Amino acid sequence: MLPMLATPAAGRGPACGVPTDGDQWAYEVKWDGVRVLADVREGRVVLRSRTGRDVSSTFPDLAALAGTHADVLLDGEVVALRDGQPSFSALADRVHVTDPRAAARAAERTPVTLVTFDVLRLYGVGLLDRPWQERRESLDRLQPAGTAWQVSPVYADAAALLAATREQGLEGVVAKRRTSLYRPGRRSADWVKHAHRDHQACLVVGWRSVEGDPARMGALLLAVPGPGGELRYAGRAGSGLDAAMEDELRAALAGHDLPAPVVDVPHPDAAGATFTAPVAVVEVRHLGRTPAGRLRQPALRGVRADLAPSDVREE
């Protein structure tokens, strides 16, 4: 099963396009982490990413979920804290780790928590066709034990939550229609998300070396699918590219070099670049787009090992 996805809010102004009828909608914090489904039964837990990949070995600190309930399927976000705030960059150091011993060491350095916001099965009974309100009441009756998981709070005032999350530096807000059913793998207008900062998952289509040091990556060449699915050049990004990210990218891109780019890259960016097949996904923070569709002042946040290239779409 794949998780249900939210539709980006399209509006501007104080509500940012988020529905504001608290009788019909409920509001949650948009957590800056990695989405997983946690399937607990028979004393073990299996964690699956939004693409369906088993990531249980990546997060051994969530194995304690196995002892919480006999049979439950939870939807939530794996979150790592830095200075008391959810930090995707802190989490990015963990999402690519699969070796059990390396994952255990990473868990000691950067512990995570599963922030749950939905329950899809309970005591063997599927809840997908129950309205969100009923599923949420079932989730609220479950008592989190230990530090492995917690339940995301629900709020009734969209404007207040938007203001509070913006002021506190949190990621944003998700609005959920109280009558909505859970539709696995679908992006639904019954869930509407607003992020205070613009983020975009991008495909790496090449890289430029550091001036004076051709062995090191200095900037990535990025692409994003257009409305029709065709790849379009989104610009280059070097800010945030550290040694750990470079090592992860080199491993992901090994054997995928190309003689020419898969998109039309302007000459100033293409000159001296190494081109690659679009097999690696990175997360970028930016300040909007130019009329040509390039990202303004993009800064790299981390490699999205939890996303496949086919999952990337223009936000």
Rank of each mutant, 00 (worst) to 15 (best):
E248Y: 01
E248K: 13
L249N: 03
R250H: 09
R250T: 14
R250E: 11
R250P: 13
A251L: 14
A252E: 07
A252P: 06
L253H: 04
A254S: 15
A254Y: 00
A254T: 07
A254P: 09
G255H: 08
G255W: 12
G255D: 00
G255T: 07
G255R: 13
H256I: 09
H256P: 09
H256K: 15
D257S: 15
L258A: 05
P259I: 12
P259Q: 13
P259G: 11
P259T: 12
A260P: 10
A260V: 11
A260G: 12
P261I: 02
P261H: 06
P261Y: 05
P261W: 03
P261Q: 06
V262W: 12
V262M: 12
V262A: 08
V262G: 07
V262Y: 10
V263P: 00
D264S: 09
D264R: 08
D264T: 07
D264K: 04
V265A: 12
P268H: 15
P268N: 03
D269E: 15
A270M: 09
A270C: 11
A270D: 03
A270I: 08
A270N: 06
A271S: 11
A271R: 06
A271Y: 07
A271G: 01
A271F: 07
A271N: 05
A271H: 10
G272Y: 04
G272S: 02
A273W: 06
T274R: 15
T274M: 11
T274D: 08
F275N: 05
F275Q: 05
T276W: 12
T276N: 11
T276D: 05
A277Q: 09
A277I: 08
A277S: 07
A277C: 08
P278D: 00
V279N: 01
V279I: 11
V279L: 06
A280E: 03
A280Y: 04
A280Q: 03
